[in-house]
Design a protein around this nucleic acid. Structure first.
Length: 563
RNA sequence: GCGCCUGUAGCUCAGUAGGAUAGAGCAUCGGACUUCUAAUCCGGUUGUCGCAGGUUCGAUUCCUGCCAGGCGCGCCA
């Protein structure tokens, strides 16, 4: 179920009402309208409202108000579900749900527990999500961290909607950059720069500058006999391989610490070792999508909207990065994945059109490939941006951020904003233990509920099952508001998954936590002289706790019992 | 020059398969601790939804053109 039980019931009632209207000849309904409704902005407009009548007016050639009246007249019969049905000009149908119906939400959450919010909209779909894929030429920086958090959360969302999801990290270990990496290591070795005081001496432009290069150089020296220390071509390759392996392991270690795990680390060089690149290009050449011009091979991407055709093999015989990517994505499809999702830094957006073109060339729907572009992260401390520069190698690493604010805060902050807008990451705020800090605020709602349960336990009160509580005692406005919010959760998940937008979950959790904190302050939950009320309130807040936890799991943030 | 993203309250941002009087947090001002965690809560203030047209019963949302900011436009990866 991709929507809450109340929404589902209303959809079904609306469907029935339209059928009845059609059978009775009141509406033609040649084209069936989509049964959408939203939560009205104002409470006096009811719990839910639909604009189907407005949408139908043109096709039925009748006033929207009339159509709304017809539909409403049939909805009126659903007396178990609706308290009342109002038609408001120009043709809104406002629905007020019977109060008792709402309590079914609590029973449902109790029944489903950890899977509340899950759906089957992507059942049977094999999805490959490729993310991070940072080049193994240095440690992960904060931007990669955002990509990691976003990719992992999206993968969680897809799993929650029933997809069979594989997480993959693609390693560019072919080409000039590993060579440059090796040369950088050698240069640190051949200069007298292994001495600690020389680590800061900059290398010539175009080489990797970070201090980590010196560390790797030292490790490389230890692992090799001095005779192989010549700065020959062979030594550069060897040093590059060595450095790449070290850095990749460190990257994966950082990601593990960040609770990001991959099903597969896919190394680009295997595509060459196994002839996948040549095969993939041969297939495209057979379709006459690849042609030779001026001794280079081109893929005719401009046929499908790219600005120009792209070189796949250079005149010197070497394949381009794009050739690897063609092979890699061909290989993804060949492994049985139907939907490919890539999470990229926004600076790669210029690459998207040729990827879309590639899909056409490979004979797949353009929609089978989706990219989420993740914008930059700007670290802020004391209200001022933290200086970052990749050129000097003095960027802020993901590890430094994790060490400073913790995994939970880092992940939540990375997921707080829509990923295509730049993110200001406030390092001070992320560490605050107060309501200003959204992570803390949400986690604290979970912990506070756990604390209430402990307190109840001490008084000999266990949280009852919903069937053992009189839920109709839940009557105050704050309680109803929370239940309605809980009912929205499945749709929040399915919509976040559909749009690949995990930030919606973060916003939802802040709203829900806000409702809870406000409720907690206004109404006493544990009341010795009102046991029945206490029991029903415990059922309610357990449902809140379940949903907060489920949402945090999607974001990859822990749900603590105590704080 | 071409392309992509962004432009919503003082700040940071939600909201867009078109819907009713546009929201939240922060900041600011003023309140609430003999209390189940005050690690929290309550109230007040805040808008030409970048600008101009168009589509329509209705546009922050869709289309076109401008303006501003960011990013990208290699036989690099």
């Amino acid at each position: 179920m991709s929507e809450g039980i109340i929404s589902a019931a209303v959809t079904s009632a609306l469907h029935k009402a339209l059928c009845k209207a059609q059978t009775d000849g009141q509406l033609r309904l040649a084209v069936w309208p989509s049964l959408v409704f939203d939560i009205p902005k104002r409470a006096e407009w009811g719990d839910l409202s639909t604009t189907v009548a407005l949408g139908l007016a043109k096709r039925e050639k009748r006033a929207p108000r009339e159509i709304a009246d017809v539909i409403a007249s049939h909805l009126q019969w659903e007396t178990d579900l609706f308290d009342h049905v109002n038609v408001v000009p120009p043709g809104y149908i406002n629905l007020t749900i019977k109060r008792d119906q709402w309590f079914r939400v609590l029973t449902e959450i109790e029944r489903q527990g950890i899977v509340y919010g899950d759906s089957t909209v992507r059942a049977g779909q094999k999805v490959l999500i490729e993310f991070v894929s940072a080049n193994p030429t240095g440690p992960l920086h904060v931007g990669h961290g955002r990509g990691a958090a976003v990719g992992d959360a999206i993968a969680n969302l897809l799993t929650r909607t029933g997809a069979d999801v594989a997480r993959e990290y693609y390693v560019n270990d072919v080409g000039t950059q590993v060579e440059t990496l090796g040369k950088s290591v050698l240069m640190r070795m051949t200069q007298p720069s292994l001495e600690p005081e020389c680590k800061d001496v900059p290398l010539p432009e175009g080489f990797y500058q970070g201090k980590y290069i010196s560390d790797i150089a030292m490790a490389f020296v230890k692992s090799r006999s001095p005779t192989t220390m010549k700065s020959s071509e062979g030594a550069a390759i060897e040093a590059g391989q060595f450095a790449k392996d070290v850095l990749l392991q460190e990257i994966l270690e950082d990601l593990r610490e960040f609770n990001v795990h991959f099903d597969k680390v896919f190394e680009e060089h295997t595509l060459y070792d196994n002839g996948v690149v040549a095969d993939a290009l041969n297939v495209l050449r057979a379709k006459e999508y690849v042609y030779t011009l001026e001794e280079a091979d081109w893929l005719a991407t401009s046929r499908w909207g790219d600005d120009k055709d792209r070189v796949v093999r250079r005149a010197n015989g070497q394949y381009t990065y794009f050739a690897s990517d063609i092979a890699y994505h061909t290989h993804k499809f060949n492994r049985g994945f139907q939907q490919l999702i890539n999470i990229w830094g926004a600076d790669h957006h210029g690459y998207v059109p040729r990827m879309k073109a590639m899909m056409h060339a490979l004979g797949h729907l353009e929609d089978s490939f989706q990219v989420s572009l993740v914008q930059l992260v700007r670290l802020v401390r004391g209200g001022k941006p933290v200086a970052m520069s990749t050129r000097s190698g003095e960027f802020v690493t993901l590890r430094e951020v994790i060490d400073e604010v913790g995994v939970d805060a880092a992940r939540f902050f990375f997921l707080m904003r829509r990923c295509d807008t730049p993110l200001d990451f406030d390092l001070d705020l992320a560490q605050k233990k107060s309501n200003e800090n959204p992570v803390f605020y949400v986690q604290y709602a979970h912990a506070r509920i756990a604390s209430l349960f402990r307190m109840a336990q001490e008084q000999g009160i266990n949280v009852p099952s919903s069937s053992d509580a009189n839920l109709t005692l839940l009557g105050v406005q704050e309680e109803l508001a929370m239940v309605k919010k809980l009912e929205e959760y499945p749709e929040v998940i399915s919509e976040s998954a559909r749009c690949l937008e995990p930030h919606r979950v973060a916003y939802y959790l802040q709203d829900l936590a806000g409702l809870f904190h406000s409720y907690y302050y206004k109404h006493r939950i544990l009341q010795a002289d009102a046991l029945a009320l206490t029991l029903s309130r415990l059922v309610l807040i357990r449902a809140v706790q379940t949903v907060v936890r489920n949402g945090l799991i999607v974001l990859g943030v822990s749900a603590p019992e105590t704080m």
